[in-house]
Design a protein around this nucleic acid. Structure first.
Length: 215
DNA sequence: TTGTCGATTGAG
DNA sequence: TCAATCGACAAT
């Protein structure tokens, strides 16, 4: 199936697996970086308490309500940017968070953007590192990823992942709606996140029922 | 206007 | 295990 706007115009949980194995190509800041997407999470608007758009449109999340195929970047924890692909129909908030990827091209560019010396497999492992690998921040939010002239593009250079080839599970770091299995990943990929239970630790000393999990 | 908290990461 | 660090949003 081609990765056109029509394919992206469905609910986020249905679009998310289509993005596995697809590619993000960035020419931001004259770099040439290509990342193969290995892990994503779906976020719906009004029905999803974990979504930025749960409480309706705001200045920050306005892009989530736009036409499918656009890029939504947001700032978290005072230092990190994360990148989403907007999906669904125009006017309805829906997006897929890009959580991890494999750097196929431009590793030297990515390393100049990295602060720590990390393994190649971890250069785009984690949503903030993936966004940083591609050089993305708030300036790029709203870009049309399907426009050939865009500095950031969503492509499919190879075959689409087969239904049987991906796994699903609860979203990482999400406290609300933790029972919904809207994380999708390709098994066996070293860039895929270890699972972390959502929710903030409290001063009352609540036990973290956490741990890590993979595959 | 103020205070709280977050779709995270990296160091200790 | 926890600090870093700041924008968005809910509560004054």
């Amino acid at each position: 199936m081609p990765l056109d706007r029509g394919a992206l115009s469905g609910p986020a949980p249905e679009v998310a697996p289509l993005l596995l194995g697809a590619h993000m190509a960035s020419t931001v800041a004259r770099s040439q970086v290509v990342v193969r997407i290995t892990e994503v999470e779906a976020y719906e608007g009004a029905l999803d308490p974990a979504s930025h758009a749960y409480r309706g449109p705001t200045k920050r999340n306005a892009v989530m309500f736009s036409e499918a195929g656009h890029l939504y970047c947001y700032f978290v924890y005072g230092m990190h940017w994360c990148a989403n692909v907007v999906c669904g129909v125009d006017g309805v908030a829906s997006a897929v968070l890009l959580r991890a990827g494999e750097v196929l091209q431009g590793e030297e560019w990515v390393r100049t953007r990295s602060t720590a010396a990390v393994k190649s497999s971890a250069l785009a492992g984690g949503p903030a590192r993936l966004a940083r690998a591609l050089g993305l921040d708030g300036r790029h939010s709203g870009l049309d990823l399907l426009d050939e002239s865009s500095p950031v593009r969503l492509l499919r250079l190879g075959e689409q992942a087969d239904r049987a080839e991906f796994r699903t599970g609860p979203r990482v770091g999400v406290a609300a709606a933790a029972d919904i299995p809207w994380r999708f990943w390709l098994p066996g990929e070293p860039s895929v996140s270890a699972y972390r239970v959502g929710g903030r630790k409290r001063a009352t000393g609540g036990a973290s029922a956490g741990g890590t999990r993979q595959t």
